[in-house]
Amino acid sequence: MASERPVVVYPPDEDGGRRVRVDGQISGRAYSVRDIAAFLQEAGLQEYDEMDVVRSSLIEWCGGGADVWMR
Rank of each mutant, 00 (worst) to 15 (best):
G28T: 15
E42Q: 14
E4N: 12
A66M: 00
A38P: 02
G28H: 11
G44K: 11
V54Q: 06
F39I: 13
A38G: 09
E60H: 07
M51V: 13
A43I: 10
Q41D: 09
V33K: 01
G24T: 02
S32R: 04
Q25K: 15
A43D: 13
E47K: 05
V33D: 10
V53K: 02
A43F: 06
V33N: 14
A2Y: 00
V20F: 06
S32Q: 08
V33C: 12
W61L: 04
M1W: 09
Y48T: 12
V7W: 07
G24N: 00
S57H: 00
C62L: 13
D23S: 14
E42P: 08
R29V: 15
V54A: 10
D67V: 08
I36E: 06
V9S: 09
F39G: 06
R71Q: 13
W69Q: 03
A30P: 01
V33S: 11
R18M: 03
R71E: 14
G24S: 02
E42V: 14
V9G: 10
S57K: 12
L45H: 11
G63C: 01
S57E: 11
E50G: 03
Y31G: 13
G16T: 05
F39Y: 15
R19W: 08
E60T: 06
V9W: 11
L45P: 04
Y31H: 14
A38W: 09
D49T: 07
E47M: 04
P6G: 00
G44D: 09
V20Q: 01
D13E: 13
D35T: 09
R18G: 03
E42S: 13
D13A: 10
Y31P: 02
G17M: 08
I36W: 00
Y10D: 14
V68R: 14
S57P: 00
L58W: 02
G63K: 03
V9L: 12
V22D: 07
G64W: 01
P11I: 05
L45Q: 10
R19G: 11
D52W: 07
E4V: 13
S56R: 06
G17L: 04
I59W: 03
R29C: 10
A66Y: 12
G44P: 04
M51H: 13
V7G: 04
I26K: 14
D23F: 13
D13K: 12
C62G: 00
D13N: 15
V9T: 11
I59Y: 01
M70V: 13
Q25A: 15
P12K: 05
